[in-house]
Design a protein around this nucleic acid. Sequence first.
RNA 1: GGCGCUAUGGUGCAACGGUUAGCACAUCACCCUUUCAAGGUGGAAAUGCGGGUUCGAUUCCCGCUAGCGCUACCA
Length: 507
Amino acid sequence: MSTASKPRVRFAPSPTGYLHVGGARTAIFNWLFARHEGGIFILRIEDTDVERNRPELVDGILDSLRWLGIDWDEGPIFQSQRLEMYRAAAEKLLANGFAYLCYCAPEKYAGGDHAEVEEVEEGEEVEEKKSLLKKQRCGCRNLDAAGRAAAEKQAASQGFQPAVRFRVPEAGTTAFDDAVFGRREVQNAEIEDFVLLRSPKPGQTARLPTYHLACVVDDMEMRITHVIRGADHLSNTPKQALIYGGLGAAPPIFAHVPLILGPDKTRMSKRHGATSVGSYSEEGFLPEAFRNFLTLLGWSPGDDAQFLRTAELLERFSLAGVSRTNAIFDRPKLEWFNTQYLQKLPVEELAPYVAAELKRAKIWREEWAGAARAWFLRTIDLIRLRTRLLPDFSAAARGFFSDDFSYDPAAMEKFWKDAKLPALMAKLAESYAALAEWNHDACDKVLRDLAASEGVKAGLLINATRVAILGQAVAPPLFDSMLAIGKERVVARLRQALPAISAKTTS
RNA sequence: GGCGCUAUGGUGCAACGGUUAGCACAUCACCCUUUCAAGGUGGAAAUGCGGGUUCGAUUCCCGCUAGCGCUACCA
């Protein structure tokens, strides 16, 4: 395979916030595509808007990408450090007539009120103005020598530097190819003379590029072959196709991927709950599960397969499977994916996540990584069927790892009500203390024998014991749990619970 | 307002002219059961509307409607 044919793609977030789930999905698609095709994945930071840009957020975005398991081959490359390239490109467009200097004040067009823009079009056919709401065609576009000199003089006297606008053809159409949406063609009359280089703000000297210019110049320079990005860019792509043409380059293949919406079908926002990747990692989702879920939003392997681990995703991903319809972020489905991973991952793979969670909860013990590793893995395996998120290991299952746990009020209420319990549990504790062999069947027999001789149902003791040794109404099967916790601690906890049980039954 | 994109159960995807319209999540019922889960079985639930094209439309075309996107010297 020649290196020239290697696909090159990029993910280009703007550091104006954390990594959004939509951005994450776009990053995943780019990454999967690059890895599937044996191509190159580049990370680029689009920080050309000095007012919105927050450099300190870059690390957070990078962390989120790493958490997702995404690695990049080149970058991060910062646009703010390549301003000269954009300026040179604008210069070239100016020189070959594809752009012109605009001396208008930025406020003139801010807000996009087309009505006031129309008066700039004096000299053109009046009837055409009424029929079609024309896109911005600045008067500066057709300045004659005298007018230009005057504008320049005026600007100079005010210390104002003009912006550079693209000279969009009056007639004709502009087309481009999209791997998802097919060939697109739009009327040039519908495209405004968009800005390429902004006029410097007071106090600035650098002439910063707008998104369109920087994006195209970078994609050209980076030899990007496939631009995979959100469908919100679909309508703006003709502008970029125009820039490629002006710069004498062939545009890449575009692949616009559908957006991810909130449950009410509107753009995802904080109203819908967490929108940042970081918050899902903090909540305790497994990155692979989260990624699996996101990948299936707007993409399908073509069949009904859903549980797709990294290797399968890499093997099966293709742009052909990308959908054209927006998808809704369905939290319950995400949770289902997480429980699937929690239950099906090889326990050795899950262990590091559990260890991290226990460390976070400050109940981690180093021996679990060493001498007691086998016990640790067995215990995780015992617990995981009842977990949904990582913190469950340190919360509901806390009693497996620490003596510092409390009795859940609802559990006490439910299983410590029977008046016979204080006497029964005292006997049970001593029976266990006297038990020589600590194994599942022996523990089972002791309890059932006691229940039989006392004339109560085994369930009464089982349920009460569960609360006594773990503090929870919900836990793995009792005798398995007792084995994991150990005889000493079970007996101790049983004895320790006696006062609380008495208090509960008599209250 | 203009331009564009999209349209299969509540949700995510299959079916790319011929299927009793499939799978999964969620939901309901039952089974299993020492709790709670998991698991198993079964149920309810969809081709937005209207025209075409065709022997035959979920699938192709047109209109409508709805949703979304773009319409910034933001990306």
